[in-house]
Simulated assay, not measured.
Amino acid sequence: MTKKLATLNLKGKSDSTIAKETKAAKNTVREDADKIDTANAAITAAKTKIDTADDYLNKANGYADQNAAYNDLENQIEAQQRALSATKSSSKKKSIDDKIKSLTKQKAAVAATMKKIADSAGYTKEMTAKIKAEANIKTEKKKISDLTSKKSKDSATEKALAKENAKRKAAATKAQQKANLKSIKDKVAAYKKKKPDSYGSLFERDY
């Protein structure tokens, strides 16, 4: 699917300004991509901490089953959140929102059970580390969502500026070529005007 170019008001802006804005827009898109990469790296690091904590927590009796239930509820909530973002129907939004609230309540209850199991087994430190890592993942995912939206808009702006910049460069090149051709023609005409006609000179010498 072809992305639409952003509609920008570029009237009155000089060629040099357009060139500078094009370069700046390109840098902005690159910065957006770098920030998304950084957020993804943070999520990967947080997942590693969760895996490390789970290596201990899964030793606690009953924890593994509760953890599986927690992950399943988390996946269901994320699926419902995607559905909420996609729908435009008010009635469907309310229905989905109610499901999210119900699933979130269930997840909180499972999380409380997991914490009790971890505390009883002496893994409070590991559970705290896991909770912190999960919070970090949630923050980074929100950041990625916002940055992805920003990057899409910034990319549209960059493409529009790049198109205008290329258009102006082409026009400037064409104008320069036209000016060069006129200059050459003028020089040739001037040269011909100064140079005496060879046949006329011979005629004058013979008669």
Results as ranks from 00 to 15, higher is better:
residue 147 L to C: 10
residue 181 L to E: 15
residue 95 S to P: 02
residue 144 I to M: 02
residue 93 K to P: 03
residue 182 K to M: 05
residue 151 K to E: 15
residue 180 N to L: 13
residue 196 P to S: 08
residue 64 A to D: 15
residue 107 K to E: 12
residue 79 A to P: 04
residue 85 S to L: 08
residue 68 A to H: 12
residue 180 N to W: 09
residue 173 T to H: 09
residue 186 D to I: 03
residue 91 S to E: 12
residue 89 S to D: 12
residue 170 A to H: 07
residue 73 L to A: 13
residue 147 L to S: 10
residue 78 E to M: 09
residue 71 N to F: 08
residue 118 A to K: 05
residue 97 D to E: 12
residue 197 D to I: 06
residue 72 D to E: 13
residue 160 A to I: 02
residue 173 T to F: 10
residue 84 L to G: 00
residue 125 K to T: 13
residue 129 A to I: 06
residue 188 V to N: 06
residue 186 D to G: 00
residue 140 E to G: 04
residue 180 N to C: 00
residue 156 A to Y: 00
residue 112 A to R: 09
residue 154 D to K: 07
residue 147 L to M: 12
residue 164 E to K: 05
residue 124 T to P: 05
residue 180 N to M: 08
residue 98 D to T: 05
residue 176 Q to N: 14
residue 198 S to Q: 08
residue 93 K to W: 02
residue 127 M to F: 12
residue 97 D to K: 09
residue 192 K to S: 03
residue 164 E to G: 01
residue 112 A to W: 03
residue 87 T to F: 01
residue 143 K to D: 11
residue 145 S to F: 04
residue 158 E to H: 12
residue 87 T to R: 00
residue 98 D to M: 00
residue 166 A to M: 05
residue 86 A to V: 00
residue 140 E to D: 11
residue 121 A to D: 14
residue 155 S to C: 00
residue 167 K to N: 06
residue 180 N to R: 11
residue 183 S to T: 15
residue 169 K to A: 14
residue 177 Q to W: 08
residue 189 A to N: 09
residue 90 S to C: 01
residue 139 T to Q: 10
residue 125 K to I: 12
residue 169 K to F: 10
residue 130 K to F: 11
residue 188 V to A: 10
residue 123 Y to Q: 07
residue 171 A to G: 05
residue 174 K to N: 15
residue 116 K to D: 12
residue 85 S to G: 06
residue 196 P to W: 11
residue 178 K to P: 05
residue 195 K to G: 00
residue 138 K to Q: 12
residue 73 L to D: 12
residue 65 D to G: 09
residue 164 E to H: 01
residue 130 K to W: 07
residue 128 T to F: 06
residue 120 S to M: 00
residue 196 P to R: 12
residue 76 Q to L: 13
residue 108 A to P: 08
residue 102 S to A: 12
residue 187 K to H: 07
residue 108 A to T: 13
residue 68 A to P: 11
residue 93 K to V: 01
residue 172 A to Y: 03
residue 71 N to K: 13
residue 67 N to E: 15
residue 195 K to E: 09
residue 128 T to Q: 11
residue 90 S to L: 07
residue 64 A to V: 14
residue 63 Y to P: 11
residue 85 S to A: 15
residue 144 I to L: 07
residue 154 D to P: 07
residue 135 A to K: 08
residue 85 S to R: 04
residue 189 A to P: 01
residue 77 I to D: 01
residue 127 M to N: 10
residue 138 K to F: 04
residue 193 K to W: 03
residue 69 A to P: 10
residue 159 K to M: 05
residue 120 S to Y: 01
residue 83 A to T: 04
residue 182 K to A: 15
residue 68 A to E: 15
residue 153 K to C: 01
residue 65 D to C: 08
residue 152 S to K: 15
residue 182 K to F: 13
residue 137 I to S: 00
residue 142 K to T: 14
residue 174 K to S: 13
residue 138 K to H: 11
residue 135 A to D: 14
residue 98 D to A: 13
residue 116 K to Q: 14
residue 173 T to Q: 12
residue 81 Q to G: 01
residue 141 K to I: 02
residue 138 K to C: 03
residue 133 A to T: 03
residue 66 Q to G: 07
residue 197 D to V: 05
residue 177 Q to V: 02
residue 150 K to D: 02
residue 128 T to H: 09
residue 136 N to D: 14
residue 90 S to F: 10
residue 114 M to C: 05
residue 174 K to I: 03
residue 106 Q to V: 03
residue 150 K to R: 14
residue 157 T to V: 15
